[in-house]
């Protein structure tokens, strides 16, 4: 698990107590996701990784698993790096 995935797992673990969340595991299928988690997850991703989650990113598949969230972070940070002046 890379450092980004590890941080995501640490954050999500508080919502999935007594469960060793795996990178590809579908957190929606586990049944613990509610609006409280949804909003905190967006805030966590933005603050922890310094990216802005926008309306276009509102897709459950972007938040479905540790891997999916890490993928969103990678795309957002990659896009930010491309947009930055050389």
């Amino acid at each position: 698990m890379d450092p980004v995935q590890t941080k995501i797992k640490q954050f999500l673990s508080r919502f999935f107590k007594n469960h060793d969340l795996q990178p590809e595991e579908d957190i929606f299928a586990l049944g613990f996701v509610n609006s409280l988690l949804a909003m905190q997850l967006v805030a966590f991703v933005e603050k922890e990784f310094g990216v802005a989650v926008a309306d276009d990113d509102l897709d459950l598949d972007n938040f479905r698993s540790i891997q999916a969230i890490a993928g969103l972070v990678a795309r957002k940070t990659g896009a930010a790096a491309e947009a930055a002046p050389a």
């Binding site: 805030a43 966590f44 603050k47």
Partner: peptide
């Protein structure tokens, strides 16, 4: 202000 998830 700091964008902390705990703000909710």
């Amino acid at each position: 202000e700091s964008g902390d998830p705990g703000a909710f």
